[in-house]
């Protein structure tokens, strides 16, 4: 008896496995740690952010005084806010379009039975693993007008006459950010798509082949519908992240030159730490959030429909 007890004390996992409590308690117990952390550090601050956006904040003492919607009015009347908003939207659209297309192409390619595809699968994920700061370093270095490899080669191949300072020219700086973002985030699509391709029901494909379907038909009638929920989730995630993207934009140029790479998150940061107007920063952030919620709601509807059609 006492021996048995001893065993239980020394093997908490075993004790846990024998435990049989009600589903309700178990459910709440399992959820509790995550729920508490998320509520305290992610949900509650949203509410506080809303409150701050209705106040004028003294930057030195962090004292607040209620001023109503004045912060929102100030932000909406600021031309820079609208410039940043449009810049953000086309940054999101262009980046996601290309990551989706390239990601799908590479996923389908690496789903084929090729020698060395496992190595290739590992290698194509590298840009995603490498931190934004390193990517900023990399592209700054490669595009440097005096010692950058890309400028040197472009001149050698007579594509350009003389080196171009791509990152310090307002006309080209944002394109560098977009290009690097596509490069960095395509692997995310590959991870998602390959995982889904792995579990595609083979019977479906075989049945279609027996019925004489072409590979083009199989792609559109079987592969794409099967992939659709994951495509929508991946796009939802990437849209949110690209919209919120701070590091990949900011670390390339700190918002410059001449605000050419100032997207909404950079705009909010500048309001907070350069202009030191915390109230307006909170108001701008809240407006960003509103836009995001609208987009997410749209994706949510799409996702529900795609799942419904599949099952």
């Amino acid at each position: 008896m006492s021996e048995k007890r001893k065993k239980q004390v020394f093997n908490p996992l075993d004790a846990l496995l024998q435990l049989d409590i009600s589903d309700r308690k178990l459910g709440l117990l399992l959820l509790a740690p995550a729920a508490i952390l998320i509520t305290a550090f992610a949900l509650y601050p949203i509410v506080q952010g809303l409150i701050v956006s209705l106040n004028s904040v003294n930057f030195a003492t962090l004292e607040t005084s209620f001023i109503g919607i004045d912060n929102y009015a100030a932000v909406l009347q600021d031309g820079d806010f609208w410039d940043s908003a449009w810049r953000t939207i086309w940054y999101v659209l262009i980046t996601n379009f290309f990551t989706l297309i390239i990601g799908m192409a590479i996923s389908l390619l690496l789903h084929q039975e090729l020698v060395g595809r496992n190595i290739a699968r590992g290698l194509v994920l590298f840009p995603y693993l490498v931190p934004a700061i390193v990517i900023a370093l990399t592209w700054r270095f490669m595009l440097d007008p005096t010692l950058g490899v890309l400028n040197a080669w472009l001149v050698d191949w007579n594509i350009i006459d003389r080196p171009i300072a791509f990152l310090t020219r307002p006309q080209t700086a944002m394109f560098v950010v977009i290009f690097a973002s596509i490069w960095k985030y395509t692997p995310f699509m590959i991870i998602m798509f390959l995982a889904r391709l792995q579990v595609i029901p083979l019977e479906l494909e075989e049945a279609a082949k027996l019925d004489g379907a072409s590979s083009w038909q199989i792609f559109w009638k079987i592969t794409i519908p099967w992939m659709l929920p994951v495509i929508i989730i991946a796009l939802l995630l990437r849209t949110i992240w690209t919209f919120n993207e701070f590091e990949m934009v900011y670390l390339f140029n700190f918002g410059g030159p001449l605000s050419a790479t100032t997207t909404l998150p950079v705009y909010v940061r500048d309001l907070a730490s350069e202009a030191r107007n915390l109230g307006q920063a909170a108001a701008a952030a809240t407006l960003m959030l509103g836009l995001l919620l609208v987009m997410a709601w749209g994706y949510f509807k799409l996702y529900a429909r795609a799942e419904q059609e599949l099952y």
Partner: peptide, 11 residues
């Protein structure tokens, strides 16, 4: 979906 930037001041 919270933009991290919105959390900075409250956090």
């Amino acid at each position: 979906m919270m933009p991290p930037i919105i959390l900075i001041v409250p956090l």
